[in-house]
Write a protein that binds this DNA or RNA. Structure first.
Lengths: 129, 129
DNA sequence: CTTGACCTTCCAGTGAGTGGAAGCCCTATG
DNA sequence: CATAGGGCTTCCACTCACTGGAAGGTCAAG
């Protein structure tokens, strides 16, 4: 299977798949003409990667998860730890964004948004006191 | 005032201030010895930038906000629009992260996290059906 | 035989800095 | 007066996870 079909099946851009090969996440064989030849297990890996990335796992996390996935003797605690650390990072990020959101909401609410120059948003950024 | 003191006052790393000069956000004068010489208005600008960045505005948003801040004849509607667009992006990002968080929470909850290889997290990533 | 879609590699750029090297400048101390 | 240290300068490379584009090879259809 060529890269275009692999991309369709895995739900990833072809460019991304080439990049994943570059960094050693997948190692598709090559046809005589130099085209990448994806087999079913490559597609599985790519699909796995697409799902893990969609859940926000970093590439390095994905590399580890993929290794664990391939390792039938793995301990599920290893996977769980990675997922839990990622979950903690996500929750921190959500909290940070919620703080920003609340502040911005207040500012936007208080701003008349008309033709006059007076603007609480700029006032706050320039001098929050 | 040298860059170190400016950094302390504005709450930004010196490196970041140099970077902001590089991209034209601030234009401090220079002493005879080549050192940057920050005056009060530079510190104000840097402080403004630090606050806007802390609220998650992009550098380009900051550039626009700074220009509006300096423009006494601005319309507050311009500022409001920028803030509202940013707010919308933040809310989208929060929603995305919340989706990830919910999925991850379920997976982590269902994973025994012991020495056995069976792992719902990997199962889900490999075959979500 | 040509067209057009596909594939290849390689180079450069994104955002917003951060790290580090090499080398000046300034002040304080012995 | 020499030197040690800290701070300042520039410049280059690196981060993360791609993405865009150029230049050129390959393949199937008409």
């Amino acid at each position: 299977m060529n890269i275009g079909d692999a991309a369709t099946k895995a739900g990833l851009p072809a460019k991304t798949i080439r990049y994943y090969e570059d960094i050693g996440l997948v190692k598709p064989a090559r046809d005589a003409n130099g085209y990448r030849a994806f087999v079913q297990s490559d597609i599985h890996k790519l699909t796995f990667l697409a799902r893990a990335r969609a859940l926000g796992f970093s590439i390095e996390d994905c590399r580890d998860l993929l290794a664990l996935w391939e390792d039938s003797s793995r301990a599920s605690s290893d996977v769980r730890r990675i997922a839990q650390e990622h979950l903690a990072r996500i929750e921190t990020k959500i909290a940070d964004l919620e703080d920003m959101r609340d502040t911005l909401k207040t500012l936007v609410r208080d701003c008349a948004g008309d033709d006059r120059p007076d603007c609480p948003i700029l006032n706050r950024l320039g001098d929050p006191a």
